[in-house]
Write a protein that binds this DNA or RNA. Structure first.
Lengths: 132, 132
DNA sequence: TTAAATACGACTTTATTGGTCGTATTTAAT
DNA sequence: ATTAAATACGACCAATAAAGTCGTATTTAA
């Protein structure tokens, strides 16, 4: 319970790897997959996702790969997770108010508060903090 | 992502319900299930679990049910979740050091820190806070 | 004796996550 | 031009976890 998904995990590993190599260097998927023993195809999809979101920049063709473009200081953990995995909340009703039980639910408010605290905490963490 | 399980959700709802009625009163499963539209059998198992853990006290036979016994001030959210769902951690390596990648993993430390922060935050929340 | 309740393991179903496959596209090097 | 090394990406499959159901036993007040 309460685990990060592999997608998030792999994305963080990759970003840190790229960060360490410097932001002009082009790194390809295979290199990272082998270094950390991650399934190539899955990492590939993850990196493609990061590229679509503008966090890394794809370089196609031979000797291609990805180059770190985003300023990781400016990207917080809440946004990062949500951009990879969608809405992050302890209960669905945090985002989606279709819950039939909304009227009778007796724990909604406290849960919303905890949720806000977690988000707030994640908001304060930049990816740069995590990858350096 | 990052959702509480139904089990935890239902347990909290039930505890709050019982708390509201006062701690001497006996409340049965069916009453709670109907009030919040929760599958009876599932709630039953959850309450049995809480009973095994000594948080509520079973009263068998007709007019039976459960009575709140634990002092909810003394039970924090980390312990509560773990007692219902087992170890709570962002990555398995927080508890289990069998991960093959431990040696090469480049994000373990930052993740462990975040994990500690969450646990720390949950440690400071008593169930009483959540159910009153 | 009956009926209303808990106790609980086994099972099934559903949802989510994790991973694979096939195929197309881009492009540097030859 | 051709080749080969890379990204791009949708469709599919597998594994795991979560959610829910079923059957049967036990307890006990009326």
């Amino acid at each position: 319970m309460f685990k990060l998904t592999r997608k998030v995990e792999y994305a963080l590993i990759a970003l840190r790897h790229m960060q360490n190599k410097g932001s002009e260097v082009v790194t390809n998927t295979k290199e990272i997959a082998e270094a950390y023993d991650i399934p190539v195809q899955l990492l590939a999809k993850t990196l493609q996702h990061l590229a679509r979101e503008g966090i890394i920049d794809p370089v196609q063709g031979p000797h291609g790969g990805y180059r770190l473009t985003a300023n990781l200081e400016d990207l917080n953990l809440t946004d990062f997770i949500e951009l990879l995995e969608g809405p992050m909340g302890l209960m669905d009703c945090y985002f989606d108010s279709n819950c039939e039980q909304l009227g009778v639910c007796n724990i909604r408010l406290p849960i919303v508060k905890i949720n806000d605290s977690i988000r707030n905490m994640f908001n304060k963490m930049s990816l740069a903090d995590l990858t350096k």
